[in-house]
């Protein structure tokens, strides 16, 4: 699927980032994400998940180290990276006052699609994410699930090679959550690489083929959900406690 096969979709080498007030947020992050997989970045609040994704999606600069997305260096070729990624969740929002269709068309145009292509693509995505009936309503009247689906659709307005997704099912009812999970699986099936950050073990377990556990700005463990569980002979919850010395946030996605 990926024309540059052999190259990881995401590569981080010793990425460091500190903020004046928060101190060292990323403390030598190493990460390899294979193309076409759903990769989970699991960690408690403050572990550095958001910063990692903000650096990979060119929203924030790194202090040192190297970060590549589909072979493009985020520091040297941010424009090249931006053409190949989609960003959704808390990292990027849609316009609440405009309608779903207007959002899709606008972001399509800003992705430098021609007007006709942007319109056609918007129609397709509205259909795919079951938003046709709500297409011409302002987004502020959408339910949580509809909003999340629109967010996903907007981040896919130009077929992205890598999609950054933040806690895709937080605050959703079980039905909407399953819809979003299905959409994410479908994407990965069609060759898109998904990097998913989550605090929820169930989400990581159900969705990801690989999980990297992030704590204090570095990866403390990595493997398939089964491998991580096998390492400590329990469930992911125990694995997390074992790895970080802290219990994972107790919650059901």
């Amino acid at each position: 699927m990926n024309p540059q096969s052999g190259l990881p979709a995401i590569l981080c080498e010793d990425v460091r980032k500190s903020y004046p007030r928060r101190g060292q947020v990323l403390d030598g992050l190493d990460l390899v994400v294979e193309p076409g997989t759903i990769h989970g970045l699991l960690g408690p609040n403050g572990a550095g998940k958001t910063t990692a994704v903000r650096i990979l999606s060119t929203l924030q600069r790194l202090d040192s180290g190297r970060a590549m997305v589909t072979g493009r260096d985020v520091a040297r070729d941010p424009a090249g990276v931006r053409e190949r990624i989609g960003v959704a969740g808390q990292y990027a929002a849609v316009d609440e006052i405009l309608t779903g269709r207007q959002n899709l068309q606008m972001f399509g145009r800003l992705h430098h699609l021609r007007a006709r292509v942007a319109r056609a693509r918007a129609d397709k995505l509205l259909e795919r994410f079951d938003l046709v009936a709500a297409a011409d309503r302002p987004v502020r009247h959408y339910s949580g699930g509809m909003r999340r689906r629109l967010d996903l659709a907007v981040s896919l307005i130009r077929s992205a090679r890598v999609l950054f997704l933040d806690e895709p099912s937080t605050g959703l009812d079980p039905r909407s959550r399953n819809d979003v999970w299905d959409a994410v699986r479908e994407l990965a099936g069609s060759g898109t690489t998904v990097l998913l950050t989550t605090q929820y073990l169930e989400e990581a377990d159900r969705l990801c083929s690989r999980i990297s556990v992030l704590d204090h700005g570095r990866i403390v463990a990595e493997g398939s959900p089964a491998e991580l569980k096998a390492r400590v002979g329990g469930n992911l919850d125990d694995a997390f406690l074992h790895l970080t010395g802290r219990p994972m946030l107790v919650g059901v996605a």
Partner: peptide, 13 residues
């Protein structure tokens, strides 16, 4: 505040 600026900054515009 709302993240729309971040969305735009993540685009090739």
């Amino acid at each position: 505040r709302g993240g729309v600026l971040d969305r735009m900054r993540s685009l090739p515009m």
